[in-house]
Design a protein around this nucleic acid. Structure first.
Lengths: 228, 228
DNA sequence: TGTAAGAGAAAAATCGATTATTGCGGCTAG
DNA sequence: CTAGCCGCAATAATCGATTTTTCTCTTACA
């Protein structure tokens, strides 16, 4: 099955880009930290050129901050920025969901059910959290996929990556997590019923609750010893 | 006046990035064309490393398409994509304008009047068109600047660059141009009056008319000899 | 006449070394 | 003391050369 296309030969740049993007989103770099290029070079066993190309891409994407003549930094976590990201997620994902429900066909319904099922079944044990995150991201992508705008999808993806940096820094919130997981199922339900209005309301609530979880990662950051 | 900040020392990468971005937006590369890296190297008198870093950034930004192991291409101009870009501009700039009118202060009003005036006074002679484009972009930026969301502004900027690629490819449309220019003044008027609803309607119309101009650049592309 | 294989050229990607800039310490003049 | 300046070490940026992959053209064979 599938087109017998030539095997997609990845470059070192693209490989390291994917890895770094994951690691940044998953909070494996301290927020605000300076990126030591030569350290990364060893840590990921890659040459300078592909590494720098990957860093340049990540900066253009918004997961790193580039300062001329002084390299790259991991963006710090700011409450104001999280507010902005969450607000934009509400706006754009709401818009996309509405369109997806309007345009999505039977094939979409199947994929949506499948994605939701896989996510529900997935193990959330600490060592399998990366896998769960993949399925979670995929579910949300599937939900809005048939919205008809590649640019809208692109922006949403970008915002998701930004948002997840905050969420993954925050402490676990089991009670809220249960509610959020249940909402995934409800979103599918409303999508299949083509209830645009209710779906938007639920999506808003879903993002709002996620936001409140993510927020705990920011406010906790304030050190009690330093008044800054 | 201004903070006595250290002089921002540009890197070769950043310099070439700015230049290429301009040239891409202004249509100085044929749509769909393959980017010959070594040709650019000579054309812009820059080394391979900074050039490649700039190209990587541009691809992440969406002004180039990167294909592993076979370099970079200039995106082709597709009607469907222009539709998407224009639609998103309407949505996002409408949203941003509404917020800007709500949050903008007196300082904003001054800057807006100034930007509109500079644009109106600007010469549109063919050899000064780059300057006019700068002022035009700046006017639209100023209009939505106080919307309160850096991400929204970022997306709008990106869409503007995409949109302008199409618009600058299209043949001149003097009559429509006059209407569009007049609308700039009317937008300022409505912004100062804080008439959110009317401003959004006008912005929608403004983008729609610009879209229709830009569209002429796409449909003309179709060769009469080939029926595809 | 069509298809596949392969050599050689062209282009992309990467490496290793070099150059330029910044950041930090100590030193000195006021 | 403290502000400012020098020089050194660390780091970022860039260069030139090399390796790897793709592209193109030719030839062989069915």
């Amino acid at each position: 099955m599938g087109i017998p296309r030539r095997k997609e030969q990845l470059t070192a740049s693209s490989r390291i880009y994917d890895i770094l993007r994951q690691d940044l989103v998953n909070g494996r770099f301290a927020a605000g930290e300076k990126v030591a290029i030569s350290a990364l070079k060893e840590r990921y066993e890659v040459g300078l050129s592909p590494l720098r190309e990957a860093l340049n891409r990540l900066a253009a994407y918004g997961l790193l901050i580039q300062e001329n003549q002084r390299g790259f930094r991991v963006p710090s976590l700011e409450r104001g920025e999280l507010d902005d990201i969450a607000e934009m997620r509400r706006e754009l994902e709401g818009m996309a969901l509405e369109r997806a429900i309007r345009f999505g066909d039977a094939e979409w319904e199947s994929e949506l059910l499948a994605a939701a099922h896989r996510l529900k079944r997935a193990d959330m044990a600490p060592e399998k959290v990366d896998e769960w995150e993949q399925l979670h991201a995929r579910f949300h992508r599937t939900l809005v996929a048939p919205c008809g705008s590649v640019w809208l999808l692109r922006f949403i993806e970008q915002l998701h990556d930004q948002f997840d940096r905050y969420r993954r820094m925050a402490p676990e919130a089991q009670e809220v997590r249960r509610v959020l997981d249940a909402q995934h199922g409800e979103l599918v339900q409303l999508a299949l019923e083509r209830d645009i209005k209710a779906a938007r309301v639920l999506m808003d609530d879903h993002i709002q609750r996620s936001y409140e979880v993510a927020l705990r990662g920011v406010t906790v950051e304030v050190s009690p010893s330093r008044p800054g």
